[in-house]
């Protein structure tokens, strides 16, 4: 069925069965491949996108459930060639190795900071628990999120 999605500020028309996971529509039809497949089971968080500002697992979200809502993917965080503070903080802290988990980590962290601009280390770990980094860069990810939060707080 034809569905209209609002992705990164633009209206996009797609053709997909209503129960198809949003992940595949983003990747296959809109070529937004920054959102990754990691398990398709809701367990790894690699497919995290924002729907109306809240982080969701796009592998478990039927495309129809996202219709008409504001979808933000990693590709939508950068503004006019300037990295989002969380992206910049990940880059500065080199909070990745293979980088496969990175876009989703950044999206999840951006959502967290939107809600709570200065989370504690504990809060970051608790809220990001669903995002896996098999390369084990967790300590740097926490440091990057804290770094971004202090940047965000500065006027």
């Amino acid at each position: 069925m034809p569905i209209t999605l609002l992705v990164n500020g633009a209206e996009r028309r797609v053709e997909a069965p209503s129960d198809q996971p949003l992940l595949y529509v983003l990747r296959e039809q809109l070529d937004l491949t920054g959102t990754k497949y990691g398990c398709g089971e809701g367990q790894c968080g690699a497919c995290t996108v924002l729907v109306d500002g809240r982080p969701v697992r796009s592998c478990r979200t039927p495309v129809s459930a996202a219709a008409g809502k504001k979808i933000t993917t990693i590709e939508g965080l950068e503004q006019d060639g300037k990295l989002h503070p969380v992206q910049q903080a990940f880059l500065d802290a080199e909070a990745f190795q293979c980088g496969y988990c990175t876009p989703a980590m950044i999206v999840a962290a951006a959502a967290l900071l939107n809600e709570n601009p200065s989370p504690s280390e504990q809060e970051i770990m608790r809220r990001m628990e669903g995002n896996l980094c098999r390369c084990g860069t967790y300590p740097r990810i926490v440091a990057a999120v804290r770094q971004a939060s202090s940047v965000a707080r500065k006027p």
Binding site: L32, G34, E75, Q88, L91, F96, G99, P103
Partner: peptide, 9 residues
């Protein structure tokens, strides 16, 4: 590194 944090890689 930039390609990885921006999802472009």
């Amino acid at each position: 590194g930039r390609a990885f944090v921006s999802g472009q890689h």
